[in-house]
Write a protein that binds this DNA or RNA. Structure first.
Lengths: 259, 259
DNA sequence: GCTACGACCTCCCGTGGCGTCAGGTTCAAG
DNA sequence: CTTGAACCTGACGCCACGGGAGGTCGTAGC
């Protein structure tokens, strides 16, 4: 078993750790799980590593540096190593995983950017408002049905990720602000309210722009946003009625505006 | 204490989980760590959540969706919430963290791309070669001294991350292949060997291009690569002599080529 | 031979954010 | 009254180690 390198150099566990930039504890761990067993032990139990162990360790560290799990590493290093296909497959899978990870990371970054922008802007009234926006974001994430998500995905391609994030965030903020106006029963000709509703409609139009059959599309669009508002209302502490009231309120403001 | 919402709706833990898209277990966990305690319990011990709990949960989920840890969330939600500055600070820090994370992710992706490219290319002799390349990568990552890293960083800016990764990978492969030739004592006028050495020198030149004082820079460059080779040799199972032999071999090939 | 002192040993708890049983109790509908 | 779904607490598992306790081993200097 040790015949192959019975004559070579030996390293203690600490030397090995220093050589490879790992820690003694990590080597203990690899030993425990059987990923890298010391080829020999001294009579007193100290580990002695051989050249083969060292080279295996280098491979392990390289693969870990590529983000593979210890289990995966054990698998590819267990194959008699003439199995490059397995290695290629694993690395390809890893690459795909990294790419989806990168996508989520970008989305996260955009959300954070948006939120920070909102925090910096002067239009931010206070902490209550911001916390409500947070709630709306959470609700938004769990409220859209699958087919609605698909519809959004179509628009997503056209708007680009930035546009979608911005819209999502803006919409969450709008719902929060408008709900407050509904609760306070602001008059429908309040300029502030009109500005909010204009932004609301512009947002909906951006997702469902008027095409050849402009009016029909817009109707569908507004209905969809209204339905989402209701769905969201069902998930909020405020009763559904309140959310329906919001939609009604929107309509009343529009009537006053378009008259 | 419960006076504020003594009259509102109550939700069971399962209802709350369905509303917010979480799991019962997660809510148990939040309760355990004190992040979200149910406002009340029934006489039999079942949790009853109030409207305030629900809204707090929405905030928690939104912040978790932004990648904050439960501890951080507890901190910002504990502040009496008029502390938007703390929130801004935390989100900014989070954004910075995401960005460094994204950088590492890009590096990883590039490495994987490079390795896969090497695996696909026809110049890949066999699994042994590939595993040796893995070892070299590992060694490369831990061998360069700090000032050498700094020198590399300068060039890095000029070459771009892609260039650095490609070079790193190519160099690792070259060392592996050349070491084999040294071991097999291939003749110095072997065309395959010459091609390898040409690639080696081209690589070094790419990192240390000939400027006004061309020759001196090149000498420095070659010395640096040679030193790294020795340093690397010291970390390899092969003795230092072998690595020094590699450098000598390189020189002999160059002499034959330039004559 | 004695004494440091460092390197090594094994065993075990902790990390984060829950998932997943196990074994028992309670609730709501029929 | 019964059944089945929902709920409870408690405990272990995950992943790749970090870190500490408490003991043994190796070697260098006196």
């Amino acid at each position: 078993m040790t015949g192959r390198d019975a004559t070579g150099r030996r390293w203690s566990i600490g030397e090995l750790a220093r050589l490879t930039g790992t820690t003694v504890r990590a080597l203990h761990h690899y030993d425990e799980i059987g990923l890298l067993r010391a080829a020999e032990r001294t009579t007193s139990g100290h580990r002695r590593y051989t050249e083969r162990d060292l080279r295996r360790l280098y491979r392990i560290r390289a693969l870990r540096g590529l983000g593979l799990s210890l289990e995966e590493i054990a698998a590819v290093l267990a194959d008699t190593a003439d199995d490059l296909a397995a290695m290629r497959e694993l690395l390809t899978a890893q690459l795909r995983g990294l790419e989806t990870h990168a996508i989520r990371l970008r989305q996260l970054t955009e959300r954070l950017h948006g939120l920070l922008g909102q925090l910096e802007s002067a239009s931010m009234p206070g902490p209550d408002q911001f916390l409500t926006t947070l709630e709306m974001i959470s609700v938004f994430d769990t409220s859209f049905s699958t087919e609605q998500r698909e519809q959004l995905a179509e628009r997503r391609a056209a708007l680009g990720p930035d546009g979608v994030e911005t819209a999502r965030l803006e919409w969450a903020g709008l719902v929060a602000e408008l709900l407050r106006h509904v609760q306070e029963d602001s008059p429908t000709d309040d300029p502030a309210v009109r500005a909010l509703v204009d932004r609301w409609d512009a947002l909906a139009d951006r997702f469902h722009p008027a095409g050849a059959d402009g009016e029909r599309t817009r109707t569908v669009a507004r209905r969809m946003w209204a339905e989402n508002s209701e769905e969201i209302g069902r998930r909020l502490p405020w009763p559904t009625d309140q959310m329906r009231a919001l939609v009604d309120y929107l309509d009343r403001v529009r009537v006053g505006r378009d008259a």
